[in-house]
Design a protein around this nucleic acid. Structure first.
Lengths: 250, 250
DNA sequence: ATAAAAAATGCAAACTTATGCAAAATAATA
DNA sequence: TATTATTTTGCATAAGTTTGCATTTTTTAT
């Protein structure tokens, strides 16, 4: 097994569970303790993890608001994910889309949350399935290769029979004027159906995408219940959105 | 073999497995280590892959990264996969289950096969989606965490409307007397529905599982059209199965 | 304070990579 | 087509990485 491969597995483990024990890794990866120790040292020196006696921990878990990560977008998405997670309560039915922000949410869900998730994304489904107390239901259909989510009539049809408590979607464009927009026709149809299939809808997006517009409209801002960005709700960038009486900024 | 040709093969390999070892490539492409190293260097400089000590990795490491990467009886399963692939023709609709043998099939499908695959496994769906000319349709449902396939009424229901050309399933137990058997109730229901949803059914299994019996019955041997193992069809181990006039050994 | 677990250190073996060079293969040109 | 230039390949050697083991030091928990 390649060293980098081990590193990625270790990082994934930490991302998912917030901590790892050296011994577990040794058994799981079938290498000596020394190798694991060296791996953890390297990842620590790269600033990717927090090495502790007996294993390692997630850095963001401890200092969630430090700017230590090289990928700014990832950091922002983790902040967004943590905000989104505050909307989750036990016994909820939650419908989620695909995309990298949603993936961060899937990873960072606390292990004791007991809820049912429905998703159109196989990757999100597999990630959610790592959490013990979560039931995962995949809405199947034709797998759109660019977005890696299920699309098509079957998805729309299945969603039409469902009413979940909450729906979390990402977006390509969002603006006060044009609302939610995207460029992929198939994806737009799925998103519309998802919004209809939930009592409340939350949109997660990095601030960079605010006030960008794509070709096809998904919904008005008024149809959205929560807008979640990495910014503080009272940030001036968001002021244009704060007037809407139905939509809440998080 | 042309350099470009090798490059293509290397890229495909990395897309499929997320990594390659230099030595494997050397053996597979029958060139010297140096040549492989130079190939990897070039692809790395083009930013297409990530070169690491001992091989290379995918830059955009997406999901199923085989954590354990030591699939039991991998070689046998690869032999089985290659036999199963001979059943695939252009424009077929093929229904596949989950499991490590099916995963090998999904990985080894030739790039020029133009077909539609239906699957109940998110991991298989994502792997199939790597092939350009293949359309992937996921049969969604409740994700059973042990088998990592979709189960439940929805799966059965959707399958009832479908008639595919071929269905490929793995199995936990297979014997002349008891037929196909498994120990998981939910999985058995899905398998039964899959067999009904296809004109022909092929069972893939390593020889080790022959003449083992599990608690719950899926189907008689007579209901199976092809049994594919890593052994030669005229192997004495298989003689008990060769009497069946409907079932073909591969 | 003491025993047990984990980490650091130094070292040797196995393995991988870089470099320069000559032979072979491929492409270009007369 | 022949021959010249260019690229590609394999080999030898040296240098660099990675790994596991033995030993010592540090940390943790009782």
């Amino acid at each position: 097994m390649l060293k980098e491969e081990r590193h990625k597995i270790i990082l994934k483990e930490i991302n998912l569970h917030n901590k790892v024990l050296s011994n577990d890794l040794r058994d799981q990866l079938i290498v000596s303790e020394d190798t694991i120790r060296r791996d953890l040292n390297e990842l620590d020196e790269l600033g990717l993890i927090l090495k502790v006696h007996g294993g390692a921990m997630s850095k963001t878990f401890h200092y969630p608001f430090n700017k230590h990560d090289q990928v700014y977008a990832l950091e922002a998405k983790q902040v967004i994910a943590d905000k989104a997670i505050t909307l989750f309560k036990d016994d909820m039915m939650i419908l989620v889309e695909g995309g990298t922000t949603i993936m961060e949410i899937a990873k960072r869900i606390p292990n004791d949350l007991r809820a049912t998730f429905l998703t159109v994304s196989p990757v999100v489904a597999l990630t959610l399935a790592e959490h013990e107390n979560i039931e995962v239901i995949t809405i199947g259909g034709k797998l759109a290769k660019n977005a890696n989510i299920h699309t098509g009539a079957n998805v729309i049809n299945e969603l039409s029979d469902i009413k979940t408590d909450l729906c979390i979607i990402g977006t390509n464009g969002i603006s006060v004027q044009s609302g939610l927009t995207d460029s992929d026709w198939e994806v737009v149809y799925v998103m519309k159906a998802m919004i209809r299939a939930a009592k409340k809808t939350a949109v997660v997006t990095i601030a960079e995408k605010l006030e960008t517009v794509q070709k096809i409209k998904i919904a008005d801002i008024e149809a959205i219940d929560f807008i979640i960005t990495e910014l503080s709700p009272d940030s001036p960038v968001l002021s244009a959105y704060s007037g809407k009486d139905k939509t809440l900024l998080l």
